[in-house]
Computed example of a mutant assay.
Amino acid sequence: MDEPTFLTDTRAGYNTIAIPYDEMFGAETDTKPLTRAMFNAFAEIVAENGPVIEVGSGPGRVTAYLDGLGLDIRGIDLSPEMVALARRNFPKLRFEEGTMTALDLADGTLAGLVAWYSIIHVPPALLPEVFAEFRRVLAPGGHLLLGFQVGDEAMHRTEAFGLTFSLVFQRLMPERIEELLAEAGFVVDARLVRQPDEGEKVAQAHLLAHKPA
């Protein structure tokens, strides 16, 4: 079966920009207090409940931050270059290749799942399938944390850092994501929408939800 184009393009794009991306965005968890607040709340809720994964873990910064809060967490990313970079950045942590559309995990095995600015590369029509996959791998009572840019348009980037690639970034409306999560069987616990920080063009949304016990 042929791989969907968005997966192929996303993998190739991040393989191309892995190092400069890490250099530009690596300190996000250190500089955005509202982001840290959501991570800290998520960690407090799921701590000691079982394993956690970050899907779309990139260079590993978020996985490492949550590990520092005491979570049993590992990262999964589509891009082998990002996985290699994360392993170099954080050699004591676990990072593997994989895709959020088909997680190599048994049903109901996770206490938590983080998708931090990674669902933005999924075509909106396929988000119900992705959220169903998230629900499948979470244990009853398990929690999901999402981060994404607010909006309803897609941006196609073909150049950055002096490099050429093809990446689509989909901005998403929090209300619509809440609807899709509810349809997938999640209960939304909290929504944080913050105004653009320096270097950002649009508002940013963070959603915390859980799979009912």
Rank of each mutant, 00 (worst) to 15 (best):
P140G: 09
R88Q: 14
Q149S: 08
P59C: 13
M1C: 07
Y65D: 12
D72P: 00
V150K: 09
R176K: 15
T164F: 06
G142I: 07
E153F: 03
F165H: 05
P59N: 15
M155I: 12
M173W: 03
R135D: 04
Y117K: 10
P59R: 07
L145Q: 05
D72R: 15
L126G: 01
R74C: 06
E198W: 09
T158R: 14
G70A: 06
D104T: 13
I53Q: 07
G70P: 04
E175S: 15
R136P: 12
A12G: 05
V46H: 12
L138D: 09
V137C: 08
Q149L: 06
H206Q: 10
L146D: 02
E28C: 05
D189C: 00
V187Q: 14
T158S: 10
G98P: 10
M38V: 07
Y14V: 09
F165E: 02
I73S: 12
E23C: 02
L145D: 04
H210V: 00
N89Y: 01
A86K: 02
P33T: 09
P124Y: 04
K211G: 00
P4E: 02
L126P: 02
G68C: 06
Q204S: 08
I19F: 10
D197K: 08
R157K: 13
G112P: 11
L192I: 14
I120L: 14
H210I: 01
A213V: 09
E153I: 09
E23P: 00
Y117P: 11
E200D: 05
F134L: 01
V202Y: 13
L181A: 08
H210P: 00
V52N: 06
R171K: 07
Q204E: 10
V193T: 15
G142F: 11
R74T: 06
